[in-house]
């Protein structure tokens, strides 16, 4: 297997707040290969977005990386200078943010905003930029791009704005695309169209794609591999088929049981008792132990690691299913 494009190893991130140190990520590892869509799934507060922001080098200054490494196509992101990262972002690695309406500048036309990315990374004059922007709009299937290029974000629907965000992210043909909940707040019909587009483009361009979502059903549809996160830990990491066929971590199994998926009745779905633990102060080695019904003495022994239990199936649990 070729080397992964993005490799996160033993990454720990903490936030120093007035009320204590929040250990948002602890020893998380994952790989994203070219042409692969990796879904990162978990409840809100599980550290999905923090991982993505750290990988892009745009973590909030309040966050501190305490250990680990992030390798992006040979570049060590954590030690790279800001200048190098500015060259990398947009060109090698791009990100699609949640809620396109707030991520776009409301008082500039969408054409200008996409053009910004091109002008920053490519030596181009006004005419070629405009042509490239129109091309970018065509790739994300916006009808009538010649006219839409001069539109403002408020003149477009939510789905169109999200397409603009995608066009912006993909305009310089990045090798890595990180999509942070790209369809929250969109309709199911629009969601399906946007997700189809992301999948088609990432296969077409052989991009490495990281899809952050809380919707396990959607991840099942679009991802090749799924990383399940809980309270700043990666608890399970497996190919989509393996994961759905036989989830090994109790949290993954419970998450599947809690997701409504069409058939079956309300009795078939079960919620997960309790909430995420407070990430300040002392935490047990397995952060799920407080909510887990398979908890035993052995779970309290320190140094729980993410191990490969079968080929390509990683698990961090002492009492797996």
């Amino acid at each position: 297997m070729p080397a992964p494009l993005l490799e996160i190893q033993k990454l720990s991130v903490e936030f120093r707040t007035r009320s204590g140190i929040v250990r948002a990520l602890e020893n998380i590892s994952m790989k994203v290969h070219r042409g692969e869509i990796v879904g990162v799934v978990g409840e809100s507060g599980s550290g999905k977005s923090v991982s993505a922001l750290t990988a892009m080098g745009i973590l909030d200054p309040a966050g501190h990386v305490t250990s680990g490494s992030i390798n992006l196509g040979g570049l060590e992101v954590l030690t790279a200078t800001e200048g190098v990262m500015q060259q990398t972002r947009g060109r090698q690695a791009s990100m699609i943010f949640q809620s396109p309406r707030t991520a776009l500048n409301p008082i500039r036309t969408v054409g200008k905003q996409i053009g910004d990315v091109l002008r920053r990374h490519e030596n181009a004059n006004r005419q070629t930029v405009r042509e490239a922007v129109i091309d970018a709009l065509k790739t994300v299937r916006i009808p009538d791009p010649e006219r839409r290029i001069d539109a403002f974000p408020f003149e477009m629907s939510g789905g169109m704005c999200q397409r603009i965000m995608i066009a912006m992210a993909l305009s310089c043909r990045p090798e890595l695309l990180i999509a942070d909940e790209p369809t929250t707040g969109l309709d199911v019909t629009t969601q399906a169209a946007i997700m189809d587009l992301i999948r088609d483009l990432s296969k077409e361009r052989n991009m490495a794609t990281m899809l952050i979502t809380h919707d396990l059903a959607m991840a099942a549809d679009y991802c090749d591999r799924i990383v399940v996160m809980h309270a700043g830990h990666v608890v399970e990491n497996a190919s989509t088929e393996d994961l759905f066929e036989a989830p090994r971590h109790p949290y993954t199994a419970k998450l599947m049981k809690a997701t409504p998926h069409g058939e079956g009745s309300l009795d078939d779905i079960e919620s997960i008792a309790g909430g995420l633990p407070d990430l300040r102060g002392e935490l047990p080695p397995c952060r799920f132990s407080g909510r887990c019904d398979r908890f035993e003495e052995i779970c309290s022994t320190p140094d729980l690691t993410l191990d490969e239990v079968s080929e390509g199936h990683f698990l961090s649990c002492r009492k797996p299913l």
């Binding site: 199911v188 019909t189 969601q191 169209a193 189809d196 059903a217 099942a220 549809d221």
Partner: peptide
């Protein structure tokens, strides 16, 4: 119906709407 995620869990062909 076709746009509801979880289609892999159910079988069904993709029917997509174009445009707004």
């Amino acid at each position: 119906n076709a746009a509801v995620p979880g289609g892999k869990l159910r079988a069904g062909e993709a029917l997509r709407l174009e445009g707004d």
